[in-house]
């Protein structure tokens, strides 16, 4: 029973982490109409940055604080240089351009940090565990991940639903020309959304780094799973991304327990089942 409970906690923690990545993906699509395959590469860069910066400044939290501005700038520059030229183009070209970005970012990662696996130590403050029974305990750090993700999700909700910035962005996703004719430079806001999305993915990579290792190709793996989350939830829906992330978190964790040989397939089978029922995703507009 306790094992089940621990597995459940693990699912939720994984689901929250997935939500951070998937929400950026779904926001960039919902607001800007852009499919960003390079989103997973941002996740990977976040993990490598926190590994590197933690080594330099010897403090995990300072590492995160230093890494986030780097990712914001990187997202902004990529949006201005490349993505900005794609708004009027077919999805096909967006897929290809961001595929090209992945090749570049993956190779940059190899040039900067090599092909080795690294681990990031859990910060000392959070390096404990809570005893659940005499033999089983749950690590504090995993709880910390869940709490931080919840805070970020709440913060996102407030920004999008309650602020002027959020209002402009929502308006821009409905009618771009109208917002522009009201005297607002929507392109600047798109750049902000894109770089915020990049930072969100990187942040997920940063706080996830101590529980998983940091390795080449980690971005590709999370990207595909995030796609599944977004498709299940309905593309463009943040609420959908949340529900989808939780479903996939459960399917993945319990898949590993129940059918260990083909755990990775459980996720995709779940997706197929849900799509049979609702082709546009749970919260998607048909």
């Amino acid at each position: 029973m306790m094992t089940f409970f621990i597995q459940l906690l693990n699912s939720i923690q994984y689901g929250f982490l997935l939500f951070l990545v998937a929400s950026g993906l779904t926001l960039v699509f919902g607001i800007m109409g852009i499919i960003n395959l390079a989103h997973g590469a941002f996740f990977m860069f976040g993990a490598y940055l926190v590994y590197w910066l933690t080594g330099v400044v010897d403090n995990y939290f300072v590492g995160i604080l230093l890494g986030l501005p780097i990712m914001l700038v990187m997202g902004y520059v990529i949006e201005r240089l490349a993505i900005a030229r794609l708004y009027q183009r077919d999805h096909l070209y967006q897929v290809l351009l961001t595929y090209g970005l992945i090749l570049i970012l993956n190779e940059l990662q190899k040039i900067l940090w090599g092909s080795d696996f690294y681990s990031v130590p859990v910060p000392a403050v959070l390096d404990g565990s809570i005893a659940l029974t005499e033999t089983q305990a749950y690590p504090v750090y995993r709880l910390f991940i869940s709490v931080v993700c919840m805070l970020v999700a709440a913060g996102m909700y407030v920004v999008i639903a309650r602020t002027r910035l959020g209002m402009i962005i929502r308006a821009g996703s409905v009618n771009r020309e109208m917002v522009q004719s009201l005297g607002i430079n929507i392109n600047r806001f798109y750049a902000i959304v894109f770089s915020a999305g990049a930072a969100l993915a990187a942040f997920a990579g940063m706080i996830g780094a101590p529980v998983s290792s940091v390795y080449p190709g980690m971005g590709d793996q999370i990207l595909i799973i995030s796609f599944v989350v977004v498709v299940i939830g309905g593309i463009g829906s943040v609420k959908g991304a949340f529900v989808g992330a939780m479903i996939i978190g459960l399917a993945d964790t319990f898949g590993k327990v129940l059918i260990p040989d083909f755990a990775s397939m459980a996720v995709y089978a779940t997706m197929a089942l849900i799509l049979m029922w609702r082709p546009q995703g749970l919260f998607g507009r048909a």
Partner: peptide, 25 residues
């Protein structure tokens, strides 16, 4: 094929990954 546009892109990708993991494992 009952979906289109971005859904089609993502679903074909996900099914291909499903096969990938099947053979990978």
């Amino acid at each position: 094929v009952r979906t289109s546009g971005i859904y089609f892109i993502m679903i074909t990708l996900a099914f291909a990954q499903m096969l990938f993991y099947y053979f990978n494992e």
